[in-house]
Amino acid sequence: MATVTEAQRGSREAADRLVREHDGLVRGVIFGVVGRAQMVDDIAQQVWAQVWQRLPGLKDPRRLRSWLYTVARNAAIDAGQSARRRQGVALDAVAEPVRDGPQVNPARITIGGEVREELLRAIEGLPALYREPFVLRHMEDWSYAEIGELLGLPVETVETRLVRARRQLREALRGKVEHDGSA
């Protein structure tokens, strides 16, 4: 909180600390909303410019995290809409699940480099309402309660969305994970 107050008074060092501490959150929120990793850098820069400009207006420094979330989310939504208009494509498209894959055996699972790339694409292809909590969970290691508080959702809803996100990812990658049979 002292850092926020110092940054509000114009301390560059404090602003620097703020960025260090919260850049992960900002980037996670952006990725969760737009679902395009290559867009994250540009939007994050816009977000930090807005934060720098509007920080003096933040009345309660204890609300920094939810305030940052709102700024980042709005910037990501705007950028996503602009990109959609430019490209004429749905950024929020649902990944097409791959069906009729091989049966899963009880074994340790390894995932190769190419599959990692496909996994990222599958995460990008998740509907935003599943992707947002999923990314926050994995970027920030937040609890259901923390995610729910930030997204304004009941804990049960967060849990359900995470279950569905995992299920969709599994379906999207079915048949592409390897079992080494060592278990």
């Binding site: 992960g24 952006i30 994250v40 009880p106 999923f134």
Partner: peptide
């Protein structure tokens, strides 16, 4: 058990993939 292993692997890799792509 297989399902658990698969979800665990996906989860682990998803974390790596997101952090590598975004951070």
């Amino acid at each position: 058990d297989a399902l658990f292993e698969e979800y665990a692997a996906l989860d682990r890799e998803a974390g790596h993939a997101i952090r590598a792509a975004v951070a």
